[in-house]
């Protein structure tokens, strides 16, 4: 069963990895992805908005899809909301499997899909006080599309 959390609080990669693998002897590979807030163009902060209820539901749907496609034995997805400053972690994806290929592929799938299929919106705040909404990128759509199943 995937673990899904949407929270304002920071997360700790080490603690989440330890929690996922505690007492387990069936996991041969644990893959992780951590997305961080980057200081582009004098960015002071990112403010992340979400759709409470639907966001958790969408993340669960994406994680369930990964669970169905790869032989996973563990999966954690944590996405933060609220105001984040450069250097802070935004999103965590952990995937565990008996072997590395499934863990690595499922991890890449999850981050590609959640960027285009989970209702979060980023607003950039700059040092001068101005702010703007981040626009969706065609490259993100392309990254998600490569995981589409053949018809």
């Amino acid at each position: 069963m995937p673990t899904i959390r949407v929270q304002e609080a920071p997360f700790d990669l080490g603690a989440e990895s330890a929690a996922l693998t505690a007492g387990r002897t069936d996991i041969g590979g644990l893959a992780s992805f951590v997305g961080l807030c980057r200081a582009d163009d004098g960015l002071a902060a990112l403010v992340l908005e979400h759709y409470p209820g639907m966001t958790e539901r969408a993340l669960k749907k994406i994680a369930d899809e990964a669970w169905a496609r790869w032989p996973l034995t563990g999966c954690t997805v944590i996405h933060r909301v609220g105001r984040l400053v450069p250097g802070e972690p935004i999103v965590l994806v952990l995937t565990a499997s008996a072997h590395r290929a499934a863990a690595l592929e499922a991890c890449a799938f999850l981050i590609d899909w959640l960027k285009t299929s989970a209702p979060f919106w980023k607003r950039e705040e700059f040092a001068g006080g101005e702010s703007r909404w981040v626009e969706a990128k065609a490259t993100d759509d392309a990254a998600a599309a490569r995981w589409a199943k053949p018809a």
Partner: peptide
């Protein structure tokens, strides 16, 4: 029913 811009999480 909800309305919003294309999503930009991750």
């Amino acid at each position: 029913v909800a309305f919003f811009p294309p999503v930009t999480g991750g």
